[in-house]
Each structure stands twice: as structure tokens, then as C-alpha cells.
Amino acid sequence: MNSRLEKSGWLGVSNSSVWLLGAALVVLLVLPLLIPVFWMRIATETLMWAVVALSWNLIGGYTGYLNFGHAAFFGVGAYAVGILMTRVGIPFVLALPLSGVIGGVFAVLLGLPTLRVRGAYFAIATWAFAEAMRQIALLAEGLTGGGEGLRFPALSDNRPFYYAMLGLFVLTLIGLHFFLRRSKYGYWLVAVRENEDVAKAMGIDVFRAKLIVFAISGVIAAMAGGIYGYWITIINPNEVFKILISDNAVVMSLFGGLGTFWGPVVGALIVHVGGRLVWLSWGSDTLYIVVLGAAVVLVALFIPDGILGALERRRSGNAYKQDVNK
């Protein structure tokens, strides 16, 4: 399927890549000691977006089911952690994995009817779901604090959150590596995306593959939301369920390359840091929406396989190629 998969090395990663990844991890670990607080904030956000985009890409890029309501899982995670910590009194380290479980359950419930039919229904249903969750959070005031927001116990130090995001980021990458490249599901997914009918004929349980992937996607996004909620200390339904979160996940994955392993990370880095610079220069959220939308249009028109896909195409010098293990 892919020549690199057979290469020797550590757990299917070539030796040179292991050195590269190790060096990158060391840099990320010492980063908080080197940069000012403002940039550490942006670094934490970038890691968060990378995780959110990676989780989006899992269902959107690998199966072709576009989730336009990814914010729903992010918000559910933030509220799950908040409610568990403040109303139930569970410590953060326990509340976070629980929020992942809750996000996964929501994904399964949403996926059961929608992943059986064509992707257009899924795109619509997920979008409507995020809107419905926002409204529930606004209306269930007793549990969520409604429009007033939910307040977490404040933690003045920013560093734990950076390391929590970094931990989630690294765990997500390792998990995805094993899931996509070392388990049968990785191959199932490529088969489903390339041709769902043929995959079915080969005996692949297409629906189960999609449902599992969607559940994992929900788990990861919910945990990113959980850390985010504790970090910003006060969450509001209009903030953690906002459309812009789904938009960002879509754009970052698209930008980097749908269905590529590193695409969402590259996309998150470029789009988020670029977006912050736009914001710093012009200070306008409205302009950010326009720039984001224009970026999506340009990607759809000129590089439908994203930056990584286009680079790969240039290197191999041929037409569009879809390959899961870039």
C-alpha cells in the first residue's frame, strides 16, 4: 500500500523521522522557558487547534464525511469538565478523560443515524447538532450557568495548560499513528474513502469503521475543549459552541491537506499564527472571517489536496494522488 510502511525503524517510523520528531518534542518542551507569556498563549492555542484539526481530519479527511459542527464536541468537553469539577467536585485529571468519554458517546449517538446515509446529510446534521447543543447549554441554566457562563476554579499559572495541551497533542499523534498506520482500521478507512461500494464488496464493515472513527474524533475534540475551558476559567455557550471553531477545524485540515497525517498540524500552525497576525495588525474579527472564507475558496479552487498534497504532487511530478500515509 505504501512503501514507507515497510521501511525499518522504530514502530514503523523511519530512523531519520524519529530524530526529527524527538528534536521537535524537545523544542516544544522547553519552549515556555524561552518565549514571553503572550507568545506562549499563542503556542498553547496553536497546539489546541492542531488537536482539534487532527480530530476533525480523522472523520472529514479520512472518510470524507464533513463535520460542520465539530464545535459541538469541543463545547461538550468544556462543559463536561466544568460541570464535573464545579458541581460534582471531581479533580481535573479525572474530569478530563471523563469529558472525552462523554464526547465519544455524543459522537456515537449522532453518528448512528447520519453515517448510514450520504455525506450531505451528515454535514447538515452535525451543523444542526452544534446549534442545538448551544441552545441546550443556554437553556439548561441550572447545570451550565446559561448565558452568564460557567466559572472554573482559577489557576493563575499558564504553564500547566501549555503542557496539558502538549500532552494531548503528543498522545493524539501517537494514538493516530497506531490507529491509522498500524491497525486494520487505517486500511479500512482508505478503502472507504477511495470507493465505499468496493470497500463494502470486500467485506469491510464500512458503517462500523466510520462510527469508530467518529467516536474517536469526538473524544479528542472534547478533551481539547476540556483543557481550554479550565484554561480560560469562564465559558459561555456562545463562545465554546461557536461556528468559528468548526470553521477553523475545517479550514486548517483543508489547508494542510485532507486525509494526510501531518496536514492538520501544518494547517493549524499557518492558519492560527497567520490569523493572530491579521488580528494583531488590524484588530478585526470580521476581517478574520472574510480571510478564512477566502482561504477556503482559494484552497478549493487551486490546491484541493492542501499544502502537503501539493508538495507531494510537485515532488512526484504527477497528477492528484490520494494517499493516507503522507
Binding site: L66, G259, V296, P304
Partner: peptide, 18 residues
């Protein structure tokens, strides 16, 4: 083109944001 079945949705989504 790559991901041809998704790009119609993606393009109209981008247009709506603009």
C-alpha cells in the same frame, strides 16, 4: 481533481463565510 466529491460543499462553505 482531488477530493472532488467534497469540494462543492467546501467551496460554497467558503463563499458563505466571505
Amino acid at each position: 481533481r482531488a477530493h472532488a466529491n467534497l469540494m462543492g460543499l467546501v467551496l460554497t462553505f467558503g463563499i458563505s463565510q466571505v
